[in-house]
Each structure stands twice: as C-alpha cells, then as structure tokens.
Design a binder for these strands. Structure first.
Lengths: 350, 350
DNA sequence: ACTCACAATGTAAGCGCTTGCATTATAAAA
DNA sequence: TTTTATAATGCAAGCGCTTACATTGTGAGT
C-alpha cells in the first residue's frame, strides 16, 4: 500500500482541480511551456505540444480564470447590464451584441438590474471585479458615483438604447423623444384628442421620460394641452399593462387612444380591453413601442415603434471593441427608429 | 516638479485599480486588517474599521474577484446554462432560481447554449473556470465527457426541467412524457384522429423527445397508430412555428389538431392559421406547452401545459445550496405539470 | 570540427488576495 | 504596579497563472 501523498496529488480519487503544474509534471515540461501551449502554441515545438495537450486532456485540465486574469491583467470578457431579462425587450439587441463579441473572441457576462439603480451599481462593481474589460449600459440615468467609478477605473463603456444630444457620453441608439413624437403624431392624425399613456416608472429611466416628452411635443405642436395627457406609471409586465388600462378607463375624459411605453404593456392593455368588451381599434386605439415579436402575434397586431435592436447590439459591440483596443471613439451614433402601422391604431370614435 | 513615481502609485491621474495594499497604506494598517474589515468586520476594532472603510470609499476600492477566489478557494457564485434567452421559456424559472440564490448571498452567472451541446460544454468549462461553485443544467442530454468533467471536478449540479426515472442524476422537474400524454389525451377527447406535432429539434433534447413519446403513448392507448403522427422539427421561434404549420398543412391526411413543442411555436402556428384564413379552433386546433405569458395574450388563448416554473427554479436553488453545503442530496424531486384548457383546442371538424 | 544565430525550454518573480500563526496593545485581576 | 488573559493587529506563505529573461539545444555556414 502506498503512503498517502502529502498534498493529495496524482491519481487520488477526490482530486482537486488539476493545475498547470500537474499538467507540466505529467508531460515532463515546465509550467511555462504548458502555459505557452495554451496561449501561444506556435512557439512550442510540435512534439512537446502534442505531449502537453494529451496531458491536458487526460487530466481534464481547464485553466483557472481568476489566476489567469490576475497574471495576465486582461480577461477578454465584456459585461452588459440590462434592466430586465423577463421579457424580450433587450433580448434581440443583446443577442446581436453577444454574437459580435464572440466573433472577436470575447466572452459576455450579462447581469440584470431589475430597473433598480442601486442594484445596477452593485452589478457594475461585480462585473468589474470579475475583470470585465468593458461594459454595455442601458440609458444615461445613474448616479454620478457610478460614473466616477467607471472613469476612475478607466473602464470603457457605452450607453445603448438612447441618443440624446445633451449627453456627452458615448452612446448608440435612437432618440426616444423623437421616436415617440413620430408615433404620437400618427395617433393625432387619426383624430384622437384625448390621449392616455401607460409608462414605465419615469424616475431613473430616461428613455421613459423622453418618450413622455415626445408625446407632449406632438400635442403642443397640434395645439393640444399637454397637461391633459393621462399618465399611469407602472411596471413592464403584461398584467400591469392590463391594470393600467383599467385605471385609465376610469379617468375623465376617457382617452380614445392609449400609447404604451412598450409592447409588453400594450399587450396587457389589449387583453384588458378585450376583457372589458372594447373593440380595438374601433372603440379604443392602443399602441406599443419596441416592435418585439409579441407585437405581431397579439390581435389586433400592434402599431408600434420599430427599434433597431440588432444594429444597436452589434454597433455597441463594435464601439466597445474599438475602445478596448485603445482607438479613441469620439462620436455617439444615432440610429433611426420608425413607426410601424399595424392594426391597433384606428380613427377616433365619433 | 515631482519625480515620477516608480510604480505610478497614489494620486496619479491614470490610476490603476486600487489594491488592498493601497487601502492598507492609506489607512496605516496591514493588508490583513483591511481584508478582515471586508470579510469579517467583527474582529476588527471599531476605530480602525472606520478608518479603513473611509479609505476604501475614498479610493473607490473594489476587491479583485479573481484574486479573492484564488486565495479563498470559493466564490459564492453559481452558474446556470439555459438553452435560450431569446424567449421567455426559462425566464420565470431562472428568475426564481436567482432570487433564492440572492437570498443566500450567492451570485448567479447565466450562460446560454443556443441548444448547441458543444457550446454548452464550453460554457460549462467557462463557468467552472470562473469559479462557479455549483451548476444548474437543463435536461439530461449531454456527452459523457461533460459529465465526467463535472464528476472529476466534484462540481455539484442539478438537472432541471425534467423528471425521468431512468436517470440517476439528481434532478428537479416534471415528467415531460406524462405531461404531454395528458394533453394529447385531452386532444383526443375532442375527437381528433389526425394529429400533427411541431417539435423542437429532437436530437440532444430529451424534453422534446419525451414529449413526442407522450403523444405516441396516448395514441396507442386509444388504438391510433402512432406512426401516423405528422412530425415537423424546427427551431423555437415564432416564424419557425408559422412555417412548420404551413408544412404540416400540406401533409396528407391533414391534421385537425396540431400540438406544439412549446407556446412560442404555437403562437407562430396560430399566426399562420390566421393568415391562411383558418379559424382556431373551429377549423384546426392548436396547443402549446409551457404556459408562458404569451399563451394568454394570443387569441385564441392557448390550451397548453402549465409548467411549474417558479417551483422548479426555487427548488433547484435549494438543492444546489444543500449540495454546496455538503449535505448529501439523494432524491430527485418530481413536480406536477397540468393541462390548462383555454380556447385554442376545440372539437374536431366533422 | 567549430562558430553563431535562433528556436525551444526553463527559472522565477510577481498579479491581489486570504488566513494560520506570531506578535503587540489593552484591560482586568491581583 | 505587575501579571495574565484576551482582543487587535501584523507577518508571510501561498492560491494558479503569465512572462521577461536566462539557459540550453539545434542546424547552417565556414
């Protein structure tokens, strides 16, 4: 019987994760050579490389990410913090972002902030601690502390989903205000005089605020009193959308068209309208925002604002990649969002 | 003018991330004390703690995760790999999983495999390398190599979304075969003789296979020939569901009821049916699976199988937590999935 | 056969943190 | 005051990896 090995090395059953050293030992080379095999194979002779790789496989070796990051001071990892994963609002954009990154050999870590700024701050810290080389953030709204932290650490980041001339930070997205204004104009074109808005929480969400402003802009231009706009703030879920519509229907004057902060809310509103026996769009018009899949499958299909999800995602990745590579990116990029007319917007009932 | 500092420490503009040592220096204590302030504050005197914390704040210090994991050999991080983030199938379950973990002070890292086993394998490696203490996996289907790796590394993991008596691995979920059989029986109860199935890719997806088997079980029991079931395999997207229905409608005999592998597919099928001028359920019945939000908002609302998303998520977290704490979990847990009748299933046309 | 250049490998110093153990300050007891 | 138990703190050894730099091996040129 063998004496138990001092540090439980080798063939023992309850093996610790194998380390570089284990691989080195087994293949009879130094750890440096093993490391080179993994990171820069071309400098190692064919023969030893084969031997090392075999040992790697046999041992089931996988490098320890933390140790590697510590020694190499880069991680090839980017982070993204999105407000929610519960619905598809950010899914397509994120997908495009991720694909572009993968193409460049970098890994994406995703976190969700549940629309809570303090939580987002924690997530940022956590991603940075985990070595994220760059970050994707949604919207401009966050505390100065957060931005200070980012600056101090020199972490490249880009703000997505918005374009706002008043903000200096590099961003890629569309002008939420302009986009919503476009839609509101379309609504007004249909003769609606009394509008309602089902919005996300406005605080800490510049996109929601800008969309609201967009509606007011349109009303003003058409000589309507923007303060007459009925507003309900709520969460981004279907059932909240339904509730919100119910609330709105109690207000006086009752809106003949309800614009929703996004398609999910609109889907909920549609549901409630149906439940109350209201025909859309004959009795009431409802519009969405984002143009996610759900917009097409509800009936009536939603008139909504089409957001350039994929372009934003891919574009954000490119910006971040450039920043990481030390090129200096100076220009925010503005993308176009367009109104898609489908069936949920009709003429105002007379 | 000051001579440039040797290692660019201190107040320099382009500061590196502050380290424990920087904090220690600034607050006039050793790194050990700073570390203790952060991890085990109670053993440090009030006075020094205050001083240290102030330095931490002033410097914007955040611990380096990799270094910490390296030194402490634990990360309080779990990983989850789900097949897709594009739709909401796993969203609610994951949410519950995450909440339960957060309650226990552990962080969740999520990756998506796009239903590709090789990719999943890479993701597992990556999460483990990043120090995941435990893993959540969906379904049993994966290569022996993958399981070997997990065993060798002694990584606790649980398989979710399935319950299969034939598999020894610890799992939490429902019996997909039984659940789909239940639904199929309901369909047959409505007099349908000719069935179609729009399924996900069967290979590498035990859930999809079991659901298929469930339908066959039901057909056999009712004296129908299971080989008459019309099957289309496709991806889990709305447009794929639509296409698949179109295909199925060309087959002979034309199915009077089409069961879909999940609600997303069913939503697509509904869309296509509408496009082709077919009334659901008068002309054709369509059913879903999963009971995600989408099932209620399409019209007609989907008859589908309600899956215990939240219980699975929370339960999985509890199992994993127990395993991580060294308790040995021996029993898989089986949850119930039930049929929800809504409006998309009707009697067979005569 | 003997340089010399260059390819292949090895040596060893950290990266930023935790933690067992040793040391010192503090306060209660004598 | 001196002793002694105890609370606070410091010291220093790694954790698993990468990478300058040093060393050795190889084949071509003379």
């Amino acid at each position: 019987m063998n004496a138990p090995s001092q540090r439980n090395r080798g063939q023992d059953k309850a093996a610790e994760s194998p380390t570089l050293e284990d691989v080195a030992e087994r293949s009879g080379v130094s750890t440096a050579t093993v490391s080179r095999c993994l990171n820069n194979p071309s400098v190692v002779s064919e023969k030893t490389r084969a031997r090392v790789m075999e040992a790697v496989k046999a041992l089931g070796y996988a490098p320890n990410f933390g140790a590697r990051a510590l020694a190499a001071k880069r991680t090839n990892t980017f982070g993204a913090i999105i407000p929610t994963m519960e619905n598809a609002i950010f899914a397509r954009g994120l997908q495009a972002f991720q694909e572009e990154l993968e193409r460049n050999g970098i890994t994406l870590l995703v976190a969700s902030s549940s629309y809570r700024p303090e939580l987002e701050d924690k997530q940022i810290q956590s991603l940075v601690a985990r070595g994220a080389d760059a970050l994707l953030l949604i919207g401009h709204d966050r505390t100065p502390d957060t931005y200070d932290f980012l600056e101090k650490r020199q972490i490249p980041y880009v703000i997505a989903w918005v374009h706002d001339d008043n903000e200096a930070r590099i961003s890629i997205g569309f002008d939420n205000r302009k986009a919503m204004k476009l839609l509101a104009e379309r609504v007004l074109d249909h003769g609606h005089q009394s509008l309602g808005l089902i919005s996300a929480q406005l605080e800490g969400n510049d996109r929601a605020r800008h969309r609201l402003e967009g509606i007011r802009d349109a009303m003003k231009e058409r000589g309507l009193d923007p303060s007459k706009l009925q507003i309900t703030e709520t969460q981004y879920t279907i059932s909240c959308g339904a509730e919100a519509l119910a609330t709105l229907l109690h207000s006086d004057p009752k809106p003949t068209a309800v614009l929703c902060g996004n398609d999910v809310l609109a889907a909920g509103a549609l549901l409630e309208a149906r439940k109350q026996g209201l025909r859309v769009p004959q009795d009431i018009s409802i519009t969405g925002f984002d143009d996610i899949e759900i917009a097409e499958i509800v009936s009536p299909a939603l008139t909504t604002v089409h957001v350039p999800h994929s372009n934003m995602g891919a574009g954000a990745a490119k910006l971040l990649l450039a920043m990481r590579n030390g090129e200096d990116v100076e220009q925010s990029v503005e993308l176009e969002a367009t109104v898609v007319e489908r069936d949920s917007l009709g003429n105002a009932p007379t």
